[in-house]
């Protein structure tokens, strides 16, 4: 009887430990710090800019075709055929590249974010597909579709969440507490829906549009590591030094992979 009791105890403890281990891993988060390092504010009179273009060299791999047949609402909103947003290339310029200051800012403090950032589930796609947010800034998640979505964030340094939005017009708010580039989002209902969010402790980031351009404005003089991140092509970095009131270029070129298929 003692042996049996001991086994039951061990099993119970193992279950408790495994549940605790599984459930508690993402909740050890710091308090949000939207203001940055707590140091001096950036002097607008001496601030400069880094601007550039992200290009794509070669033939862009064909984006994977997606079938939306699983949900008539999505088919109605889009028609067919549809493809993933992986490589958005026009005139040799690459869109959906997240460009940000990776290093060199020191301990400046910044004005709090102006307002919330929005991600909209519309036409069974995420809008925007690649975007940035500041630590502690409000992320408004909206479902504009007359169908159900679940927005499932899969961060490594923030708390994972999976929120259901079954009703059109629903809005949910979320805040990220830790720096992380990038946090992937997916919809498990519609497997093709994905988005990427860069969470930073400073305001120097931008996602390239169809013209491939980006602009990081208001940087204090200094030497910076600028990183360009693309969901498939990977990352590239550049070192840029700017003097007071100077605007310097930083251009990036991603090359087509050896096998042009996605």
């Amino acid at each position: 009887m003692r042996v049996r009791t001991m086994w039951i105890g061990i099993l119970g403890m193992a279950l408790a430990v495994s549940i605790t281990a599984c459930g508690g891993k993402k909740d050890d988060l710091d308090a949000p710090d939207a203001a940055g390092g707590g140091g001096p504010k950036v002097d607008a009179a001496t601030a400069g800019n880094i601007e550039g273009v992200v290009s794509f060299d070669g033939v862009a791999p064909k984006n994977a075709e997606i079938s939306m047949n699983a949900d008539p609402v999505c088919v109605k909103a889009n028609g067919t055929p549809q493809t993933q947003e992986t490589y958005e290339v026009a005139d040799g310029k690459l869109a959906n590249v997240f460009v940000y200051v990776k290093d060199g800012l020191g301990s400046f403090s910044y004005d709090p974010p102006a307002g919330p950032i929005t991600i909209d589930q519309k036409g069974c796609r995420y809008h925007p597909h690649v975007f940035g947010i500041r630590i502690g800034q409000e992320l408004d998640i909206i479902n504009s579709d007359p169908t159900l979505h679940n927005i499932h964030a899969l961060p490594k340094g923030n708390a994972e969440f999976n929120t259901g939005q079954p009703i059109q017009g629903m809005k949910t708010m979320h805040v990220f507490n830790n720096k992380e580039v990038m946090v992937p989002f997916k919809c498990d209902v519609h497997g093709w829906m994905n988005a990427y969010l860069g969470v930073l402790d400073h305001p120097y980031f931008q996602t390239t549009g169809a013209d491939g351009k980006f602009s990081l404005k208001g940087l204090p003089p200094g030497t910076y590591t600028i990183e360009a991140w693309h969901e498939k092509a990977g990352t590239q970095t550049a070192q840029v030094t700017i003097a007071a009131k100077e605007t310097k270029p930083a251009n990036f070129t991603f090359k087509a992979p050896a096998t042009a298929t996605d």
């Binding site: 699983a70 949900d71 008539p72 609402v73 169908t147 159900l148 679940n150 499932h152 999976n162 929120t163 259901g164 079954p166 919809c187 498990d188 209902v189 519609h190 497997g191």
Partner: peptide, 28 residues
């Protein structure tokens, strides 16, 4: 890969599991 397409349990998107409308059984 549909394991998390219904984020809640034992409810389904807030509905009682048995009253969740079939018209909403889309995708995953």
């Amino acid at each position: 890969d549909s394991g998390l397409s219904v984020p809640d349990w034992p409810t389904t998107y807030g509905w009682n599991m048995f009253t969740f409308p079939p018209s909403k059984w889309v995708g995953g």
